[in-house]
Design a protein around this nucleic acid. Structure first.
Length: 464
DNA sequence: TCTGGGGTCCTAGGACCC
DNA sequence: TCTGGGGTCCTAGGACCC
């Protein structure tokens, strides 16, 4: 928290809907709803005319339609939104080099890094008023709401106070008085689950939140969330405006209008998503080590399965194959409503390039299928393990825990491949229950056996 | 016609290292 | 022999944000 109100938060009003109304004059003054129009769509943005009818973001499109049947329902035109967003962000960067976009329609600007001679409340108010005028001009009439304060927390809350087309500057020193009467939910990070937990200990407002000790908050909400909320309740917030944030993951997911059961269809859809994700990775010159498959079943329960490769990849083949294998770990026989593929553990593609070999198409080398029925020799075994841990010609197989078997796909030709853990009850695994071979017991007893297995699991394979 | 899609961050447990 | 302790990596799930 600084002595001056130099953190500015801009939030474009009903952004997607506003772009539509700007581009299609016939929609102006009418309720416009942008979002999924399919059977399972939800509202991304509702114009203020639609909000009158109680239509809100994240509401199902079906409900929105019953509340406001005469609204224009549109699927998003994201290229148009991106273009307008870029215009606004460019404007912000002219104001200050320190701009942190939070999404297409929202950003923090650090005015302390701006070339400003008057940082008084009156001074930053003039800056914000000019900015609003500039936004309208460059975008062809879009409105934004602005909050300016001594911290990110208060600037963001302030930008929301007079929406749409709002401007609130919070004078330094008055932050806590502003927050105290507000519901705890105004604090970013306090969603329905946290609000409910707090309600159960008698806390509804920020003033009441202030009464809780840090120990009590940590007990209720965990270390990170508890301590952070303790400080935010007191308007203590030193988070910096960070201009360049690196992506941590890239993913694609789709919800289907009907629950899907057909295995081949699911695999095909997974493949398509893997293609989308890896194309985006390559475009961003990124690659990643961890592949995650997300599956939402008919009952809306959501499951993820992930596996980490020994080296980063941006290969469609590798990601698709691993995704397909991961899919087998979840029982989808009841029907799948959502399927998704993500890649995380991102690495800089350029850096990886330095280690590229001559092979122009390393992706095309097929990974060997590990035939678990032919697993013969136990590599590590400990009493009580459900599944034998073994190695065989096409790959290493070993246990990383009771009831689990980890396989590394690796051959002399392909080198280290993906590592994946199967559950003992995985139908794809069909482990044979065998007595541990003598040498495995000896290995397990021997000192250093664990270390050797660990090196392999790291994707090691490199000789020490 | 309940409940999108793209993300981020945190927790917790197990394995493993030193 | 009756049992370390800190740190990291990995996986699964959940809360949250726009």
């Amino acid at each position: 928290m600084r002595a001056e109100a130099t953190i500015l938060h801009v939030d474009l009003d009903a952004f997607f809907a506003a772009v539509e109304q700007r581009d299609k004059p016939s929609l102006r003054g009418k309720p416009v709803i942008v979002g999924g129009v399919g059977g399972r769509g939800v509202v991304a943005t509702a114009s203020y005319e639609a909000r009158v009818y109680g239509v809100r973001s994240a509401m199902s499109s079906a409900e929105a339609r019953s509340r406001c049947p005469h609204a224009a329902f549109l699927t998003g035109r994201f290229d148009a939104y991106r273009a307008s967003s870029a215009q606004v962000m460019a404007l912000l960067r002219r104001l200050s080099p320190l701009v942190e976009p939070l999404s297409l329609d929202e950003a923090f600007v650090d005015l302390a890094a701006a070339d400003l001679d008057d940082r008084s409340v009156a001074g930053v108010t003039r800056v914000a008023e000019q900015l609003k005028a500039d936004v309208a001009e460059v975008t062809g009439g879009l409105c934004g709401s602005i909050g300016v304060a001594s911290s990110k927390l208060v600037a963001k809350i302030a930008s929301d106070l007079e929406k749409p087309d709002g401007l609130v500057v919070v004078p330094p020193g008055t932050e806590r008085d502003l927050l105290r009467p507000m519901k705890v939910g105004v604090i970013p990070g306090v969603g329905p689950a946290t609000a409910e937990r707090l309600r159960r200990v008698g806390v509804r407002t920020v003033a009441e939140l202030e009464q809780l000790s840090v120990e009590e908050l940590v007990r209720q909400l965990g270390q990170a969330h508890g301590t952070s909320l303790f400080h935010l309740a007191r308007a203590q917030d030193d988070r910096a405006v960070v201009a360049e944030r690196e992506a941590k993951s890239v993913s694609a997911e789709d919800t289907y209008d009907t629950d899907l059961v057909d295995r081949r269809l699911l695999e095909g859809l997974l493949e398509r998503q893997a293609t989308k994700v890896t194309e985006r990775l390559r475009k961003a010159r990124l690659s990643g080590r961890t592949v995650t498959v997300k599956i939402r079943l008919h009952d809306f329960s959501t499951h993820t399965r992930s596996a980490t490769l020994p080296a980063p990849t941006d290969s469609t083949r590798v990601v698709a194959r691993l995704a397909r294998t991961l899919l087998t770990e979840v029982d989808t026989s009841g029907g799948v409503r959502l399927l998704g593929v993500g890649v995380s553990g991102l690495a800089d593609w350029i850096q990886e390039d330095l280690f590229e070999t001559e092979d122009p198409e390393p992706d095309t080398a097929p990974l060997p299928a590990v035939d678990l029925d032919r697993v013969t020799r136990s590599r590590q075994w400990s009493p009580g393990m459900d599944v034998e841990h073994a190695e065989h010609g096409a790959g290493w197989v070993w246990g990383s825990g009771i009831g689990r078997v980890t396989v590394r796909f690796e051959t002399a030709e392909t080198g280290p491949g993906p590592v994946r853990t199967f559950r003992a009850d995985d139908p794809a695994l069909r482990p044979r229950r065998v007595a541990p071979p003598d040498d495995a017991v000896a290995d397990a007893d021997a000192e250093g056996a664990g270390a050797a297995a660990g090196a392999d699991q790291r994707g090691g394979a490199e000789p020490e």
